[in-house]
């Protein structure tokens, strides 16, 4: 395979990023190794566990299975770009207060899947939430409190609580 570097210009967490990347480099590798955004996890490597979920133009996507060069001109938000400074996003706030998080490995992906859902649908049903999280594996929390936390966050974002 050619190792010729290709120009990549895209937006990450609101900032323009320009780099030269090997065409076979994955978005996950660029985030973790080039940009040092290590909150996105390398885990199953086959789009099955969702620990590397980011938002691309507001949609949930798996950074382990997308080439970095495909991101030219697109906007990526990672877990590091979700909170507003020191203020947690309601999804994050509820996951903390409701006790959804245990080891935390899947948490970045859970937040990013939930964020994409609530960007599109602020009044999700429980089934909508389950559908949004269906690609996110957790190994310890049982999912229950993640689902409930997202339900609570949606209420907050609707201005109900």
């Amino acid at each position: 395979m050619s190792n010729k570097l290709i120009d990549l210009k895209f937006k990450v967490n609101g900032k323009e990023v320009e780099l030269k990347v090997n065409p076979k480099t994955l978005l996950l590798e660029v985030l973790r190794e080039e940009l040092k955004l290590t909150g996105t996890r390398q885990s199953c490597e086959v789009s099955a566990c969702g620990a590397c979920t980011v938002n691309i133009d507001g949609k949930a996507a798996r950074a382990c299975s997308i080439l970095a060069v495909q991101l030219n001109g697109h906007e990526v938000v990672t877990i590091e770009g979700v909170a507003d400074g020191k203020t947690l996003h309601p999804i994050q706030e509820k996951m903390v207060s409701h006790g959804a998080i245990e080891c935390g490995w899947c948490t970045s992906g859970m937040v990013m899947s939930a964020r994409a859902l609530l960007l599109e649908n602020l009044k999700p049903t429980r089934d909508d939430i389950k559908k949004a999280l269906q690609g996110n594996l957790c190994a310890d929390s049982g999912y229950v409190k993640y689902v409930e936390a997202i339900e609570m966050a949606a209420e907050v974002m609707q201005g109900n609580k």
Binding site: T38, G39, I79, E80, V96, G104, T107, S108, V111
Partner: peptide, 21 residues
Amino acid sequence: KRIPRVDAPLKVQGQAKYAAD
């Protein structure tokens, strides 16, 4: 009491450092 976990705020922002980080 139902006190939030001490590590959760870091984990929920992707700031917790795991070995591979």
